[in-house]
């Protein structure tokens, strides 16, 4: 019986073993298997097998519609590096990341700092910023298509009301990405806001009192108390936003369909169109793996940089 064996501390066993001696009989491992089985089966079918198959597919030129294709080695990856479409899509994605991450994190931080103060109706204000975060992107894009309408759109009405010129927004290649970033700010700002607000509330009040007694100005309090206090969380928020922004798809696809003239077509849209419209399955799988690889590299670089800045 396992009861017996668990009561005998093993020679050289850790301190834990001594504690176990007082514990009641422990369950057997087949029970763990039973409880893990439903999740395990689904995990195999929906994650483990597809990850491996996806990698294999990325080494083939399979076309599901025609039922053709065979092993081609790393040819898809080599093709991707020379593929102008892919390079353009990657460029648009990187542009979105570079615009979106700072805007979103900065706005989230400013809102969190304001909402962290002693305001009346704070919960209501917070709800206004968090609400959009929970909405389906398809509905958000639909609403924003009308908000951004050059003729009847409400955003241009607002601009004109305050004396600014109306904009073309979605039909102007130079502005379409800006419009996407604006929508994303409205839709997603609740996320950095909530995490940073929680981090701000975790900073002990005594630190601010001590800083004030030492005669620190508001800026100095922010620089030497607030910022170090939220630094780890801020780093995490930046990383999560980076990862999420590389996977941008639905708001762009639904707002601009990648246009005007392809100026907002992102990597995931290319993956979708390659794999599920043109049915170039192998090539699409390679795009998916390359995107994952890029995200992995970004994650590692982020970790290295943030670890180094902690040291210094």
């Amino acid at each position: 019986m396992s009861v017996l064996s668990s009561r005998i501390p093993l020679a050289g066993g850790r301190a834990r073993a001594a504690n176990q001696a007082n514990e009641p009989p422990r369950p057997r491992s087949w029970q763990a298997a039973v409880f893990l089985a439903p999740f395990g089966v689904l995990f195999l079918f929906l994650w483990a097998v597809p990850v491996v198959r996806g990698f294999y597919l990325s080494l083939t030129d399979v076309n599901v519609a025609e039922g053709t294709g065979g092993f081609v080695g790393l040819a898809n990856y080599a093709d991707l590096f020379g593929d102008g479409d892919f390079r353009a899509a990657l460029g648009h994605t990187v542009l979105f990341v570079v615009l979106n991450v700072p805007v979103l994190v900065a706005a989230g931080l400013i809102l969190a700092l304001v909402l962290n103060r002693d305001l009346s109706g704070r919960n209501l204000l917070r709800a206004a910023f968090v609400g959009p975060y929970l909405l389906p992107g398809a509905a958000v894009a639909l609403i924003w298509t009308l908000v951004l309408d050059p003729v009847d759109g409400s955003l241009n009405s607002v601009l004109e009301a305050v004396g600014l010129p109306a904009q073309q927004w979605l039909t102007e290649p130079g502005q379409a990405m800006g419009a996407v970033v604006l929508l994303t700010l409205w839709w997603r700002v609740g996320f950095p806001l909530l995490i940073l607000l929680a981090a701000l509330q975790d900073i002990p009040k005594q630190l601010y009192e001590a800083a004030r007694i030492d005669g620190a100005s508001r800026w100095q309090q922010f620089r030497y108390v607030t910022l170090p206090g939220i630094a780890p969380v801020l780093g995490l928020v930046v990383l999560l936003r980076l990862i999420d922004s590389f996977k941008v798809f639905e708001q762009v696809y639904l707002l601009t369909q990648g246009g005007p003239s392809g100026s907002t077509r992102v990597v995931l849209q290319m993956l979708y169109e390659t794999g599920f419209r043109d049915f170039r399955t192998g090539y699409a799988a390679a795009i998916g793996w390359l995107l994952a690889l890029i995200i992995l590299v970004v994650t590692i670089v982020h970790q290295v940089v943030s670890r180094r800045s902690v040291k210094s």
Binding site: L46, P50, V51, G288, L291
Partner: peptide, 19 residues
Amino acid sequence: ATMLIPGEVVLVPLFQQFR
């Protein structure tokens, strides 16, 4: 470790399996 893998990697093979 799997949580580090973006779900988009499995879109294509997942579609295959369901198909």
